[in-house]
Design a protein around this nucleic acid. Structure first.
Lengths: 116, 116
DNA sequence: CCGCCATATCGACAATTGTCAATCTATGGG
DNA sequence: CCCATAGATTGACAATTGTCGATATGGCGG
């Protein structure tokens, strides 16, 4: 990208370099922060952990409510946040809703931290 | 742990398995969430990005305030959150404070996502 | 010694978030 | 056709968070 500088190191003040690097843009930052915000709640981390440990068919809400000691609406709320963040996907089978990890989503989130 | 069942697959309802897996404990979840919460703000992500892109001596606050378009107290506040989360370290030289990445901290956070 | 400068801290405020109780929707069984 | 059940949605509320202005602290130059 932009290489800039190199000619004049400093003029009067030299607290630090005059910046202008290809740092994370405001848009990219907000994008990554949206995913990380979904991951920044302990109960949501536990939800992901339970879903990940579950079988490939997905976990239903009834199995996710008890171990978290939270009300059913609260669990539904957290699941929606995780789905909106692209971390979980929902599939309805009969009366029940099954949640499963979106393949590669956690890896992407993980990589976005290293790519800061 | 408990193996249970095996003899009787189900009695009346068979929505899903009765759980009981070694999922993320509440304590571990809160621990990981603390780090991820520090990473869940776009301005803090940009701070980290700028510090990471800066030279090895660390970046001073004066260089971090302008590109973010935030007030100086706000930047100081975010930096404190990042230091408390163990992601940045602060070193004061003269009048200026220099911030640098804690080696391996981002890698640890990244790995904690994959280890869910 | 005095005042400027960089940074941290404090107090306040609006916005967001996590939680629950109550209600709504939809599916399946009698 | 009506009821029971799984799950989502709504509304409310307390707690937390991001931001700013004002002020405190601490080092450096005159």
């Amino acid at each position: 990208m932009n290489t800039a500088l190199t000619t004049e190191p400093s003029t009067d003040e030299l607290c630090c370099e005059p910046s202008g690097r290809p740092v994370l843009s405001a848009v990219d930052a907000q994008d990554k922060a949206r995913i990380l915000k979904a991951l920044s709640d302990p109960n949501r981390l536990r939800l992901l952990s339970i879903v990940k440990a579950g079988d490939t068919g997905g976990s239903c809400v009834c199995d996710l409510t008890e171990p978290l000691d939270l009300g059913q609406p609260t669990v539904s709320h957290h699941l929606k946040i995780l789905v909106d963040a692209g971390l979980l996907e929902r599939e309805k089978r009969g009366t029940w809703a099954y949640y499963s990890l979106v393949p590669g989503a956690l890896e992407t989130a993980s990589a976005s931290l290293l790519a800061l």
